[in-house]
Design a protein around this nucleic acid. Structure first.
Ligand SMILES: [Mn+2]
Ligand SMILES: [Mn+2]
Ligand SMILES: [Zn+2]
Ligand SMILES: [Zn+2]
Lengths: 137, 137
DNA sequence: TTACTAATTTGTAACGGTTACAAATTAATA
DNA sequence: TATTAATTTGTAACCGTTACAAATTAGTAA
């Protein structure tokens, strides 16, 4: 059981109620949500919550390395709790994003063609397991 | 020398002046431009050009497989002429996108964890060769 | 407690990339 | 030519995001 209040303090972020709840949500639900999805999910629990707070908090967490921002979709940013490196699969039909546990050591290469690599993102796209079954039926 | 008029016909797209020029630009300049960059670049040559036409045309070309849409940046879509598979490196400092000639046969795998893979995008991020030199100086 | 100050949150307006849509223009057909 | 279809254009709207000032809350010192 993670103490989110402590985790925030460790990253130098004063643990307000909003920040704790947002972090908690990203940790518990591995659905790669957008800022709006986080907002919608927490509205009931924190009725006064502002969407701006969600945006600001997600940005802060990402800068501090607690979260990772994903650019799989064209128009919107998705967030996830920063865990072990893995790659993503996005379904063209249902839009879901799946975690694929596959690592590419060769991309951790500090240098490639003279450029210094700090991050690498691998995004697969296609038809997911579930949608394949539906289509086949 | 490519005959863009013929190329469009082969893809079932009637070759208007606008469509030819937009395709020509994407083929000649491998800068992974946004829709707006294409628009700005062609304004002089086609003074009546509308930004909507650029957006529509890029979309059509992508659907027909002539172009590829990239989601490396958070907010905007980048386009490139569909050539041999390669990966991308985006510089955090200057924002340039570099082509890296490295292929991953293992990702061409039709199936991964039950999902059918149709596309794969590999995006590296860091500090590019040029910016490293400037920082070191 | 109270008064004061700093940090945080909130709500609204604005921004930027993109899309919807109808009017205008151009091309194709009879 | 007249008529029709395809294409382009311009404008307004959409949507995710950000800027910013006001409101609220938390922290501190009498
Ligand atoms: Mn993930
Ligand atoms: Mn490229
Ligand atoms: Zn699916
Ligand atoms: Zn650079």
């Amino acid at each position: 059981m993670i103490n989110f209040k402590e985790l925030l303090k460790e990253h130098g972020i004063p643990p307000s109620l909003q920040r704790i709840k947002i972090l908690e949500y990203l940790h518990n639900f591995k659905t790669h949500p957008t800022a709006d999805m986080v907002y919608q999910a927490l509205m009931d629990e924190i009725p006064t919550l502002s969407k701006t707070t969600v945006y600001n908090t997600l940005k802060t967490f990402t800068e501090k390395g607690i979260l990772v921002a994903l650019s799989i979709f064209e128009n919107e940013v998705r967030y996830e709790y920063n865990t072990e490196p893995h790659i993503h699969f996005k379904c063209f039909k249902c839009g879901r994003i799946y975690d694929i546990s596959k690592t590419f050591e060769c991309l951790k290469n500090e240098e490639i063609e003279g450029h210094k690599v700090l991050e690498h993102h691998i995004n697969l796209k296609g038809i997911c397991k579930n949608c394949l079954v539906k289509a086949g039926a």
